[in-house]
Design a protein around this nucleic acid. Structure first.
Lengths: 339, 339
DNA sequence: TTGTACGCGTTATCAC
DNA sequence: GTGATAACGCGTACAA
């Protein structure tokens, strides 16, 4: 009467061997495409494999081979932002393309709670993956510390201060400086910034680049700091800036999403862009092409970052020492109408 | 002279046993928190564990336990769209929350090429996961067919025609009908639709709901079909509709991203919203709050879908039979200014 | 070219 | 309470 699950036991090498009338060793050789197998044995085994429906058990193979052909891609964003950040998707696809070409399975792990942190740590330590890529690490991150202890080939995208592992990134500071200089060059007198994510290297470096560009024109009350690279943070930041310094005529937003929010707030306030206020962003994400007017911004080669991170992990897997200085991927500035 | 990797061999249960002067069996009991271990033995073993730095090897455990405490979440979107679709992120977070609470590790797998399909199939068959959630399956999908053969507890989000596995979804047809009726009720005479993704159930059902609402007012040349739920597809679709039927005064876009694109095209054409043309969308994604005017749309409980899918997989893992009819999650209509 | 036997690191089942 | 010992499914020297 009990509705027992009818899932039959999976076929093993042993079953195939019996079916084909050979030994397990020979079956194993055929499965792994080795030489020194007679044609007749190979044929018999291949027939037996389909007949019994044999599929190699990866757990067993991992155990004896001591590797998994899998690399983790760890995402640690506060819930909703994961969804909003266009860069992560691009980085991820770039990394997957490179790993896939090398026949590695990329498994994305999202860390979204205290509980996740511990479970992911166990997962990584337990030999589920041969290496890992970590994106958007923060300085005070429990998971970041865990990873550093791990002795697993790793590559970070971005470099939290104090990190000793390999990393890839862009020159946030220089790029921020370059894009801000445009505002200076076009004669703006009161240039502000909506800084974001100052708990990460990217946020800090972009702010630093901004101050570099302004030199002694820098005024700290023209900087508003918001927690996240998000649209709504941009709206809030711009409103605050307008309230405090209504004469503002140029603004560097720490990301395109922030810039889009800022543009919305400027529109509310009746300012025209770029006539009243010039706006520049950062990322050249989909946001930049959808604002009115189009947003001048820094093109960040997100897919390239993913590829570079994957290559670093693969190199370490191949026995190479990680480059301690990190790898910089080139950016470019894209001029549109907003400044 | 060779820079040999200094990674020392990982400690095993065996090493702990020797260090603590007990047998492997007793160590295993302590590690798994079983009873019937003397306090002194437990203390000695716990000390030994930290001393030798023991961490359980998951591959070995999986092999003997025949389960992994991991569930795959498979995403199969054409590259860039993965990034654009806000629903996927929400679904993913909802699923992760539920799986995490049950102590399952969710591993996201992206299928982005032919090669990915095969590798993921091997991965799934190889015993890396105990179950899987599949999102945005398409009818003619190789990976979908592979999964159906798999005999692994699975739940689909959305239901491609002919699918026999468990699924969760929303009433796309009824919701599309309800939101379209608003256009009818407000006296629009020439109501069109930008249909999208007609290779999926969601795309087809939304179109069907639209025709339901219009009844004999339906005109096939007021429907434009675009391939993807994307912003740029919305721009193209609206332009085509305007060119063919300039008198159009209402439009149902198959998703908010499409609607945002449509609004952009209407703006180009100098039409005002909602005065000249009423627009409604679908999803209540972030797009809906960023258009001008705000978009009337269908709220899709994406996180709830993720949770429901995860619960289905967990139930199957617990031995229950999957519900063949699928599970519907409720939607709601959100009225804003666009219609 | 093929078969045998051992080891990978755990958990589970027994006796003790 | 505890300790042998047998699986779990596979790769691979080594012998034949």
């Amino acid at each position: 009467m009990s509705t027992q699950s009818p899932r039959r036991k999976r076929a093993t090498v042993h079953d195939v061997a019996i079916e084909a009338g050979v030994s397990r060793g020979t079956v194993s050789r055929v499965v792994n495409g080795e030489r020194y197998v007679s044609d007749e044995a190979r044929a018999a085994i291949e027939a037996a494999i389909v007949k019994v429906g044999y599929v190699p058990n990866t757990a067993a193979r991992n155990l004896v081979m001591q590797r998994t052909q899998a690399v983790a891609f760890i995402v640690h964003e506060p819930g909703p932002l994961f969804v909003e950040d266009p860069n992560i998707g691009e980085i991820l696809l770039g990394a997957n393309a490179t790993l896939s070409a090398a026949d590695y399975q990329m498994t994305i792990l999202v860390v979204d709670s205290e509980r996740d942190t511990e479970r992911v740590a166990r997962f990584l330590r337990g030999g589920f993956v041969d290496g890992l890529i970590m994106v958007s690490a923060r300085t005070d991150d429990p998971i970041t510390r865990v990873i550093e202890q791990l002795e697993l080939p790793a590559a970070f995208v971005g470099h939290p201060p104090g990190l000793t592992a390999a990393w890839v990134g862009i020159d946030n500071r220089g790029s921020a400086r370059a894009v801000t200089e445009r505002l200076v060059a076009t004669g703006r007198r009161h240039i502000g910034m909506i800084a974001a994510a100052l708990d990460r290297d990217s946020g800090v470096d972009r702010l630093q680049g901004f101050t570099d560009a302004l030199g002694d024109r820098f005024r700290s009350d023209l900087v508003e700091s918001v927690p996240l690279y998000s649209y709504s943070a941009g709206v809030d930041g711009m409103r605050a800036l307008l309230a405090r310094r209504p004469e503002i005529d140029g603004v560097f937003a720490a990301s395109d999403a922030v810039a889009a929010g800022a543009i919305e707030a400027l529109r509310e306030a009746g300012r025209s862009i770029p006539d009243d206020v010039g706006v520049v962003g950062f990322d050249d994400s989909a946001w930049a092409r959808r604002t009115h007017p189009g947003l001048s911004t820094v093109r960040q080669p997100a897919a390239g970052l993913g590829r570079a991170a994957a290559e670093s992990v693969l190199a370490q897997l191949g026995g190479e020492q990680p480059l301690v200085d990190g790898i910089m991927v080139e950016t470019a500035i894209v001029w549109r109408e907003s400044a």
